[in-house]
């Protein structure tokens, strides 16, 4: 359906320009809002996976074969292989306790197979460690400072009930959740797409949020998650967490690429609304 609407838009070359733009804008906003809302859910899920141990609902869902099929069409076969193998052998009632212990070992207790899921640990290290890999950095440092600055700039305040460091992978993913949620709201408000807006944060347009998302993904998340993923996959006993690491990495890459190309599209539409060459 979205495809159809797009086709209809782009085929309607001879309609009056402003009307076309308005209608296309409206449809784009609807689609974008839905998409943003879906991205909210994805980021919210991913954030939660790193912030707390799994529950039985999650296990039930992920072992469902239809779900696996859809996942593979989205993320590719490799990303789903681990989960498929997990599902094949897992029984939620038995698995849950050991998965919860696995969560603690990987993400909560430093004498376990702890992956220190903090950005500065992966980026703040400096000189070579084993086999030329960078050494580890401290729990907090300049990346935590930079992340916190962005949270403030975007008008995001961490809820009191949430007790993690600002550069924890779960918090950084939750920030993407926040940005996508604000983006979705912006569409609903029907604001313009002016990234240069000087208005209060509540009334920033979706393009401004896109910029923030791209910045945060490029300056933070995608700069370190691949290494965290390697660490999780090396330390995880359970295929479940290996799968989580893989789809997180995959999703971050896809989302970044998608945002970048959309920016191109938006910019292109602004310049020449009917120029199809600029549309991918």
């Amino acid at each position: 359906m979205p495809n159809q609407s797009t086709e209809r838009l782009f085929s309607d070359k001879h309609a009056p320009r402003s009307a076309v733009v308005k209608e296309r804008d409206g449809l784009t906003r609807v689609l974008s809002r839905q998409e943003a809302a879906a991205r909210v859910k994805m980021y919210r899920f991913l954030a939660a996976v790193y912030l707390r141990p799994p529950n039985e609902h999650l296990l039930e869902r992920v072992v469902d074969p239809d779900f696996l099929g859809e996942l593979s069409s989205l993320f590719g076969v490799r990303a789903v292989t681990e989960l498929s193998r997990f599902s094949a052998t897992a029984r939620p009632d038995q698995e849950l306790a050991s998965l919860r212990q696995e969560y603690m070992d990987l993400f909560a207790v430093p004498t376990g197979r702890y992956v220190t899921p903090f950005e500065d640990v992966y980026r703040g290290g400096g000189v070579g460690g084993e086999e030329g890999k960078p050494g580890k950095g401290p729990l907090m440092g300049k990346w935590a400072i930079a992340a916190r600055r962005m949270y403030r700039e975007a008008g995001a305040q961490k809820d009191e009930s949430c007790t993690e460091l600002p550069n924890h992978i779960g918090i950084e993913l939750a920030f993407m959740d926040f940005l996508c949620a604000r983006e979705a709201e912006a569409y609903s408000r029907g604001e313009g797409a002016d990234p240069q807006s000087q208005e209060r944060p509540e009334s920033l347009g979706p393009a401004a949020y896109h910029l923030l998302q791209i910045r945060f993904l490029q300056e933070h998340l995608t700069a370190w998650f691949p290494e965290l993923s390697v660490s999780i996959q090396a330390n995880a006993k359970s295929r479940f967490y290996r799968w989580i690491a893989q789809i997180t990495e995959e999703f971050l890459a896809l989302d970044t690429a998608g945002l970048l190309s959309r920016s191109v599209v938006l910019a292109g539409l602004e310049k020449n609304p009917l120029d199809q060459d600029k549309v991918e």
Binding site: G124, G125, G126, V127, G129, P134, G135, G137, G141
Partner: peptide, 10 residues
């Protein structure tokens, strides 16, 4: 902020 920043020692 010269390395090593944190454990483990490189």
């Amino acid at each position: 902020n010269t390395p090593p920043a944190a454990s483990p020692m490189p």
